[in-house]
Structures are given as C-alpha cells and as structure tokens.
C-alpha cells in the first residue's frame, strides 16, 4: 500500500532520517510514534510528496509516488488524503466551502449532493450544521482539527495520513474520533497512518505501531510486540508509569 525504501532526509547538516524502511500493508492502522522533533511530520510530508527525500523512494499503491502522466498522478493523489498538524484550512473559505472544495474540484457530485455530503461529514466529526457558516478563524483548536478531518474524508480516500489528529480534542471527542476511524477502516478497508502522542488513541486504534527514533524505524509491529523491544526510548515511551496507566486503561476498555 505504502512503502518507504532506504529513505534519508537531510536539512542542512542535520540528518533527520537515515535509511528508513517501512512497508504498510492495506487495511492497517499504523501509529507512528517518536520523540518531538524526531521527524514524524517530515516523514508524512514525504509520503504525500510535499518534500522530496534526500535519498530513497516512496511508493504508494505499489507505484512510485511520481510515476506516470500528470493525470495518473492526479488520480493517485485523489486516493489519499492528509490532515495537517495545524489544520491547514483555507482561511478565506467558510467551513462549508472548505469541505465542499475537494468535492467540487473532483466534479463528480452535484451541488445538491455536495450539500448532503458536507452535512454528513460534519455530523461524522460531530460538528453542528450551524458551524458550516463559520470561518476557520472563528473555530476553536479542536474544531479546526475536526473540520480538517472532515475535509480529508471528503474524497473518500483509501489512504489517510493524520498528523496528531487528537491533539487538542477533549477525551470524549478523542473517543468518538477513534470510533469513527475504526468504523471507516472496517467498512472501507481504509489504511491509516497516524502520528500521535496520545497513548489512549494509540492503544485503542492502532493495529501496528512504528517507532521512529535514532533516525530510523526502530520497530514496526503490533503494540504488544513493540513493547517487548529492549530499547531505552521504547521502554521509556510505553513502560513509564504514566504510559502503563494509559495502556492498562485502554486494554480494560
């Protein structure tokens, strides 16, 4: 579905990644974890082609990201969507126009259908229809996150990349986000890559966990297996007292 081969990234003299290999099979929900500044956002940006890696290759849907004609690339792009860490909503558009925008660009649905689809996406992320008329500057941080998710879902992507989707959401909303992603994943076989520091979300949602540290993927396996890996970062991340409590809570739920 999505694979990174020998990917390295350099900013100036600073190597952020060195030889990252990752193969994400279809239908998995993969949590990418790592310390702050370890290059998770950078990795996501490379997966969608916003950044070209210094070395290595990104393959999506079994093809190189930039293979084929312009039209083929456009079609491929339409099959994945990304939610940015800061939302990246179009600030001159209302919430409604933000979500309708990719649908209008695709030119498949009629205006009346778009209205209902937008209403549906809004209710999926638990926003009210009356929020549709607001401008992004009038939203709270968590609402921005949810509108960004609704916009990412608008084109029914097969691959969804989420950068800290639950940061800034209250626990109830985080839980419904988890439920929503899990639903979509089961119904549409969605593949999801999410960056998160939220252990509750991670434990509840991910079928696999990828740990990014020391500039490479240290471990990529199920949560239980990853937790067995003997590495200071992993031990610290999953087995500290705080983490254990969160994970126990998630397992109990």
């Amino acid at each position: 579905m999505l694979s990174l081969r020998g990917l390295s990234t350099r900013f100036g003299n600073n190597w952020v990644h060195k030889g990252v290999d990752l193969d994400i099979p279809p239908g998995e929900v993969v949590s990418l974890v790592g310390g702050s500044g370890s290059g998770k956002t950078t990795l996501l940006r490379q997966m969608v082609g916003l950044l070209t890696p210094t070395e290595g290759e990104v393959r999506v849907f079994d093809e190189p990201l930039f293979a084929g004609s312009r039209e083929a690339q456009r079609q491929r792009r339409r099959r994945f969507a990304m939610c940015f860490q800061g939302g990246a909503l179009f600030s001159a558009f209302t919430v409604y126009e933000n979500i309708a925008f990719p649908l209008r660009e695709a030119g498949i649905a009629t205006e009346a259908e778009i209205r209902e689809l937008v209403a549906l996406k809004l209710s999926m992320v638990e926003l009210l229809p009356s929020h549709a008329a607001l401008m992004p500057a009038e939203l709270s941080g968590g609402m921005i996150k949810r509108v960004a998710l609704a916009r990412a879902l608008a084109l029914e992507p097969e691959l969804l990349l989420l950068d800290e989707p639950t940061a800034g959401l209250d626990p109830t909303r985080s839980a419904s986000f988890v439920a929503l992603i899990r639903d979509l994943q089961q119904q549409l076989g969605l593949t999801v890559v999410l960056v998160t520091h939220d252990l509750d979300t991670l434990a509840a949602l991910s079928s696999k966990v990828a740990v990014l540290a020391e500039r490479r993927i240290l471990a990529f396996d199920s949560l239980e297996a990853v937790m067995q890996v003997d590495h200071p970062f992993i031990q610290e991340f999953f087995l500290s007292e705080r983490s254990s409590r969160a994970l126990a809570r998630a397992q109990g739920a």
Binding site: Y96, V118, L120, L122, S123, L128, A132, A133
Partner: peptide, 12 residues
C-alpha cells in the same frame, strides 16, 4: 445509520 443520525437541521 449515519444519514439517519444526521442532524435534521440542514446546512444553512
């Protein structure tokens, strides 16, 4: 079910 659950009020 999502359509059923959807808010009755239409998007203004």
């Amino acid at each position: 079910e999502r359509f059923v659950a959807m808010d009755e009020a239409p998007v203004p």
